[in-house]
């Protein structure tokens, strides 16, 4: 039990996927201009990341095994793309409201490197299914949290008096860097 808690803390804070592992930077910079959009993106990613981690783990364990390691990246991409498509169709039919909130971000997740990165990390570290799901979920929570915090910061920066040369992307990059440094402070808290 303690082990699982440590995994969760470890993936959300210590090895935060965006700020420590530096994965999934495209949505982090791209979809963080408005808080509303970033919440949609965070929700969609969280959903796909958790499901994708579990599915890729099962594929790796029962379909590929130790002999076909070279198929990992290829098969994970296929599976994740299919999961995203399936999720989109399901939501469109069953939860039109949620589908509208997530909007274009849902199909965009297919190309999010965090969604492929976490399953690859999981299979390299030899976990079991529950741990794999937890890591996927923890990564998703970490991603969502950082994305939403960053979007909030950027909305405030819009109205702040920033020196002319730092305006726009420059100040966003600096903010991201500072956040990353802050998250490095969690190092050593849990593995």
């Amino acid at each position: 039990m303690e082990n699982y808690l440590l995994i969760l803390i470890g993936t959300v804070f210590v090895n935060n996927i965006v700020l420590v592992r530096i994965l999934g930077l495209c949505p982090f910079m791209g979809v963080s201009k408005r808080l509303e959009a970033s919440i949609g993106m965070a929700l969609a990613t969280a959903f796909v990341l958790t499901l994708g981690s579990g599915a890729s783990f099962l594929i790796d364990k029962y379909l590929l095994g130790p002999d076909l390691i070279f198929l990992r990246t290829l098969s994970f991409i296929v599976v994740i793309a299919a999961i995203v498509q399936f999720t989109e169709m399901y939501l469109h039919k069953q939860h039109p409201l949620l589908y509208q909130v997530l909007g274009i971000y849902l199909p965009l997740i297919t190309t999010n490197c965090a969604v492929l990165g976490i399953p690859l990390i999981i299979v390299q570290e030899r976990h079991n299914l529950l741990e794999a799901l937890l890591i996927g979920f923890g990564g998703a929570v970490g991603f969502s949290m950082v994305l939403i915090i960053f979007a909030g910061l950027r909305e405030r920066l819009e109205s702040a008096e920033v020196p002319a040369i730092f305006r726009g992307s420059a100040i966003a990059m600096i903010t991201a860097g500072l956040m990353s440094i802050a998250f490095m402070g969690f190092a050593g808290l849990a593995k």
Binding site: L64, D67, L68, F70, L74, V78, V79, A82, Q85, F86
Partner: peptide, 26 residues
Amino acid sequence: TALLIMIGLALFLGLVLGYAAIKFKV
């Protein structure tokens, strides 16, 4: 084996998605 696995995976996912497209048609 690798080829068969990828073909099988693609076929399976294709079938699932095709079925979902009919089942969840809006």
